[in-house]
C-alpha cells in the first residue's frame, strides 16, 4: 500500500504520484554505492504527477514513516 509524501510545492500526496530516486549518495562519484539500510534512509523522490521537482526526505524503510524533509 502506498504512503503519503508531503511535496513542498504541492502538499501531501500518495507516494504513487512520485518516482523513486533512490538513496542520496554521499558523493556523486559513488552513486553506485547503496547501503540499503533497515531504518532511516535519506532518499530522493520526484513528484512526477505534480510540480515535477525533486525532494529529499528521510524515510524509515521498515514502516514507510517519513521522519523528516529537507
Amino acid at each position: 500500500m502506498s504512503f503519503r509524501i508531503t511535496c513542498p510545492v504541492c502538499g501531501a500526496r500518495s507516494s504513487t504520484e512520485f518516482r523513486y530516486g533512490g538513496e542520496v549518495p554521499e558523493n556523486w562519484r559513488e552513486v553506485w554505492r547503496r547501503d540499503n539500510p533497515e531504518g532511516p534512509c535519506r532518499e530522493r523522490w520526484y513528484h512526477e504527477f505534480g510540480c515535477r521537482r525533486w525532494l529529499t526526505l528521510v524515510r524509515d524503510t521498515r514502516t514507510d514513516e517519513i521522519l523528516s524533509y529537507e
Partner: peptide, 19 residues
C-alpha cells in the same frame, strides 16, 4: 483523486491516473 482541493489557488496531482 485521493487528495482534496484547496479553497483557492493551484492544486496539482493525479486525477484518474492523469497528471
Amino acid at each position: 483523486g485521493d487528495w482534496s482541493v484547496p479553497p483557492a489557488g493551484i492544486a496539482q496531482g493525479a486525477l484518474a491516473g492523469l497528471p
